[in-house]
Every structure is written in structure tokens, then in C-alpha cells.
Amino acid sequence: MGFKLLSKLLVYLTASIMAIASPLAFSVDSSGEYPTVSEIPVGEVRLYQIADGVWSHIATQSFDGAVYPSNGLIVRDGDELLLIDTAWGAKNTAALLAEIEKQIGLPVTRAVSTHFHDDRVGGVDVLRAAGVATYASPSTRRLAEVEGNEIPTHSLEGLSSSGDAVRFGPVELFYPGAAHSTDNLIVYVPSASVLYGGCAIYELSRTSAGNVADADLAEWPTSIERIQQHYPEAQFVIPGHGLPGGLDLLKHTTNVVKAHTNRSVVE
């Protein structure tokens, strides 16, 4: 069995187990497998329904001669939608809004960016022009300005110390501490036991640490421990890039980060 097929099978099995364990909360999309990078042309966006009122959005972007996937989250909030992270750029984010209108038909009224990198804030200006209120932590807003990236308009308070959590509509926002970046936030959907790890969490097929220019490698494993301790009931975990899975993604990420750190020390 090929690795790609095995990865998709694991996603399907995880979703099936969740649907059985929580039949009222989960209505997993039966329309197909989780979209992969090879299936999404740059400039297009796919939506994948995880649970009743919960979707991931998947886009792709060219970077350094390669094409990478990027995940975000959409959560229903009454007759409105909360968006977590842009679709990595203005063109993708405009396509995301169009796809949401086509498939869901509810307005996106608020959006949260989970850290300051372009795959999370690139497209904020498109959201703002569409009347979406954009939010991020003060740290993310400051770092985005320093980096020359787009800056969300509103500040999220109460997320300055490791372990801080605040309720934001249908989700809980959690600051686990520094990891992929010093400002990275985690998003949890309690009604569906869905954990969105953003770039602080890796997919299972990833074996290298990737972009760690703004990471705190020493603190990252401790931050992941905080996530595990705060959300032990999480059933569906979405990484910032690639295929979702279960809580095993947290341990896998820790292993990859520690291996990278150990290699760096040896070198």
C-alpha cells in the first residue's frame, strides 16, 4: 500500500471513529477524501466538511520552486461564519470567499490569524475590503508590521502568557507558548472536538522541520505538551499544512522538532 493511500485511509478511519463516538456532533463529509496538494491548482481553494458547521479550507501556493498546501478553518456561528487564517495570499483568499459563498452561503463576518507569517495573514486586506472584521493577538499584529505583512485590524486580548485561553464565538483560542513562531495560536472547536494546530503542528508525513527561522526550538516541545494537557479530548487535529489526523500529530511534531534540534547540535 502506497504512503499517500495509507495517509488518506488514516484520515478516513479517524473521521469514521469520530462519527461513531459522537453521532450528534459529527456529520463528516462523505463526498470524498481530504484534498491534497496535487489536486488543488494554485489560485483555487477546496472546502472539506469535518463536522456539522465545521470545515477546513485548503489552498496551495508556490514557494521556492515548489507547491505547498495550506489549511485553515471555518466555523459556523449562528447565521454567520468565523474564518481562521487566510488562504495564503490575496488571490487565494478572494477564491476562498467565493467558494464559501458557493458552498455554504453564509457571510464571513470575523477572521482570526493564528500567527504573523504570510500563509496566515496574506489576504487580510481582501477580507477587510469584503467587510470582514480581522483579528490577531497584539504580538501577531506587531510582528506582521515588522515583517511588512498585512496586519489584522483588531487585537485579541488575554493571550499574552503561555497557557492563556479565551473564548471567541464558537471557538476557544489558546496560546501554548512559542513553537513554530513566538505568537502562534491554537484554535479548538469544543462542539466538535476539532483542534486546529496551525503551523505549530505537523502532518504525519512530514519528517523535516522546514521553516524554523522564527521558531523557538527549545520551547516548542513544552508548548505541545500544554496543548495535549489542555485538549486531551480532541479527536480531529488539523495541521497548518497537509493531512489531518488525531492527537498523534502532536507527538510526531515533537519528535521531528527534537530530531532537528539534535542534528543542529551535532553539526
Rank of each mutant, 00 (worst) to 15 (best):
E172C: 03
L13C: 10
A192C: 03
S38L: 09
S31N: 05
L24W: 07
L96W: 01
T36P: 09
R76Q: 05
S161Y: 12
E267Q: 08
G65F: 08
Q49G: 08
Y188P: 01
L159Y: 02
E225F: 14
G122V: 07
G169R: 05
L106N: 15
L204T: 09
E101F: 13
G158H: 15
E101C: 14
G242D: 03
R76K: 10
G122Y: 14
R76I: 06
K4L: 04
L195I: 15
V126S: 14
T261V: 15
D216K: 09
S27R: 06
L13M: 06
F174E: 03
A66P: 06
H57Y: 03
A90R: 13
Y202F: 09
R167A: 05
E101Q: 12
S22A: 09
A209I: 05
F116K: 04
G163I: 11
V45H: 03
A213Y: 12
I84H: 00
P170G: 12
E39P: 05
V37D: 12
E172A: 13
K251S: 05
P35M: 10
E150M: 15
N255K: 08
W220K: 00
P69M: 11
R128S: 10
V112M: 09
G65T: 04
S22P: 06
S205F: 14
R128Y: 07
P35D: 12
Y68R: 08
S193M: 08
L47V: 07
P138Y: 15
L249M: 07
P170Q: 15
D119M: 00
S56T: 11
E99P: 02
Y12G: 10
D248E: 08
E147C: 13
E267F: 14
V266A: 11
Y48W: 06
H180I: 00
A192F: 11
K251P: 13
L5I: 15
T222P: 11
T134D: 08
T134K: 01
S160L: 15
V256K: 14
I20Q: 15
D183Y: 02
L204I: 06
V237A: 08
D216C: 06
S30E: 11
V75G: 01
H117N: 00
T222K: 11
T60Y: 04
W88E: 00
I201W: 02
V187T: 05
G105R: 09
G197D: 02
D248W: 07
A94H: 15
V265S: 10
E147W: 08
L9N: 05
A234P: 04
N184R: 02
E233Q: 13
A130F: 05
D216R: 10
N92R: 13
S155C: 15
A19E: 05
H180G: 00
R46W: 07
Y68I: 07
L83K: 01
T253K: 00
R128K: 08
H260K: 04
L96I: 14
T254K: 06
S264Q: 15
G158M: 12
W88D: 00
D214L: 12
P190N: 04
A59T: 05
P35V: 11
L6S: 12
P41H: 05
G131R: 11
V194K: 02
G242K: 02
D64M: 09
A178Y: 05
F26D: 10
G148L: 09
L143K: 09
A136C: 11
Y175R: 02
P107D: 15
S16K: 09
D248F: 05
K251Y: 15
Y202I: 05
W88V: 00
S181M: 01
D183F: 01
P176K: 02
I224Q: 01
A111Q: 15
P232S: 09
T109K: 15
D164Y: 15
V166A: 05
G240V: 02
T182P: 09
V112Y: 05
K8I: 06
R142A: 09
D85Q: 00
L6R: 11
Q229M: 14
L82D: 04
I151V: 08
Q228M: 10
V132P: 01
D214V: 13
E150C: 02
G123D: 03
H154I: 09
G131L: 11
T253L: 00
S56N: 09
K102Y: 15
P190D: 11
F174K: 01
F3G: 07
I84Y: 03
V11M: 11
Y48F: 09
E145Q: 07
